[in-house]
Simulated scan of single mutants.
Amino acid sequence: MTKQLLIYERAVPVTRQRHGSWSIKAGASYDFAREVNSVPLMVAEFANSASEYAIVFGGAAGEVIPVALLGIRDGENLYVNEGGTWTGKYVPAFLRRYPFVFSSDSATDPDAVFTLCVDEDFSGCNDDGRGERLFDTEGERTQYLQNVLGFLQAYQVQFQRTKQFVANLESLGLLEPMQAQFTLRTGQRSTLSGFSVVNRERLKALPADKLAALMQADELELIYQHLGSLANLTPIAERIGVPAPAAAEPETAPPAPGDFETSGSA
């Protein structure tokens, strides 16, 4: 299985035979995301993310997707403090679904069959009843596992919508590579590259019918949320070298299906 997956170490299919007596003890630690400086972001999350993260577009040609920048240097997440607590107000759904994930033999086929997997290296996985059971004593899925499936199914729907949004931006020629330079508190210079943003001038030059189509699809609003979020690049860089504040402890358990516009609490 590909490591899509940034944060997954040993994701295997969830089965009654292998995990029939397993439980998941979710906690408030985001240590698993400590070395991730960006994560995929679904379009349904733009509104809640734009106030504190820089939303940009990353990925190889044909696989471009919006991402929330969490740091400006490799292997550094500036939103996880020393205790493993998430210090932002909103936790991206990509992280909230951990330790679960869907896998598929085809990342591009919308009709592909998806298999629910769990990262067995997650510290909350156990066989002694701590947390939420995956299967009941009859071998049936628990309500917890049903909620997990519902959340991941909703995530997959949002993923397809997000891919269509990016495809529209690319077809209109609106994305362009960007490089950002920062002067850190230490006086050192740092450069961030390898991502794209919407070109404002190209956007304003679009024919009226194209702009109207973007507006009707609610994609013009998404574009301006993305552009407005770029003001967060400097505040993100300013987190370097500053002790991360304590924050309310969001749960890592997946929230209810479709809960992409709320906080990270389960």
Rank of each mutant, 00 (worst) to 15 (best):
V36E: 05
Y144N: 07
V113M: 10
D128I: 08
G83Y: 09
R73L: 00
P13K: 01
S106L: 07
F57I: 06
D136T: 09
P99E: 07
R34V: 09
H19D: 11
L41H: 05
D127Q: 13
Q17L: 11
E120C: 06
N126K: 04
G139N: 13
N126P: 00
L5C: 12
V14W: 01
S104Y: 04
T85Y: 10
E138H: 00
L78S: 12
G124W: 08
M42E: 05
P66E: 00
L5Y: 12
E82S: 14
G62V: 06
R141C: 08
E35S: 15
W86Q: 06
V91N: 02
L149D: 03
R16Q: 14
T85I: 13
E35D: 15
A50W: 07
F151P: 03
S23V: 01
V56H: 06
A112K: 12
E76Q: 14
A93V: 07
E35Y: 12
T87C: 01
Q143H: 02
E45F: 02
N77H: 10
V43D: 04
T115H: 06
N81P: 04
T137S: 13
Q17G: 01
Y144Q: 09
V56K: 01
G88L: 02
A107E: 13
E82P: 00
V56Q: 04
Q17Y: 00
R133F: 15
Q146C: 12
E138K: 00
E120H: 10
K89D: 09
I7Q: 09
V113F: 03
V101W: 09
E120I: 15
E138Q: 06
D128P: 09
V12H: 04
E132R: 04
V80G: 02
V39C: 08
V80P: 02
G131A: 12
V14C: 04
T137V: 08
A61Q: 11
I72C: 09
I7M: 14
P99V: 00
P66F: 06
R130H: 12
R141K: 13
D128C: 06
I72H: 12
R18I: 05
G83C: 09
N48R: 14
P40G: 03
Y8G: 05
Y90D: 02
R18V: 08
L134N: 11
G71F: 11
A54F: 01
V67N: 10
D128A: 08
P13I: 08
T108F: 09
F151N: 05
G124K: 03
D105P: 13
I24D: 05
Q4G: 13
I65E: 07
L134W: 10
I55W: 02
Y53K: 07
R133A: 15
G84C: 07
F32A: 13
S21Y: 03
D109N: 14
F151Q: 00
R141H: 11
V113D: 11
D111W: 01
L41R: 00
S23C: 13
D127Y: 00
A68F: 05
I7V: 15
I55M: 02
R133S: 15
A47D: 08
E52F: 06
G83Q: 15
Q17F: 06
Y79Q: 04
A50S: 09
W22P: 09
C125W: 10
